[in-house]
């Protein structure tokens, strides 16, 4: 983004507004769905999918990850892998106990 021209930034601004509207809509949707009190498994999947979608929009457009350099992608790929390991740890704990 360091070479962003004024014209390309103007295009960005339109995207930011669109993403903002999408984030607001997704917030409304996730709150509305939560009032339905779905089965726990379904509720968790739906809530986390919407959260992941919102997070992707923020990361891709506000944090400019959609057009970033390879080194940043490499660092973040490693981070995602290690984050997934952290998330799998509790699951493996219960798998060990045969629960």
């Amino acid at each position: 983004m360091e070479t962003a021209s004024a014209e390309s930034v103007r295009k960005h601004v339109r995207v930011y507004v669109t993403v903002f509207v999408a984030l607001m809509a997704l917030t409304l949707i996730t709150v509305t769905i939560s009032t339905l009190h779905l089965q726990p498994a379904a509720a968790i999947i739906v809530a986390l999918c919407i959260a992941a979608l919102k997070a992707s929009l923020v990361a891709a457009y506000f944090m400019h990850l959609i057009s970033e350099k390879k080194l940043i992608y490499a660092a973040l790929t490693l981070t995602v892998v290690l984050f997934l390991v952290l998330m799998v740890l509790p699951v493996s704990h219960f798998a060990d106990r045969g629960l």
């Binding site: 360091e2 080194l71 940043i72 660092a75 981070t79 952290l86 740890l89 509790p90």
Partner: peptide
Amino acid sequence: TGVYNAKLGIWLFLASEVMLFGALFSSYVL
């Protein structure tokens, strides 16, 4: 690196932050 130094710096810091919050989320799941 292809980026100015501060940008690489903040991304590495944010990576460490992901692990900090990740550890707490992991504890929450457990």
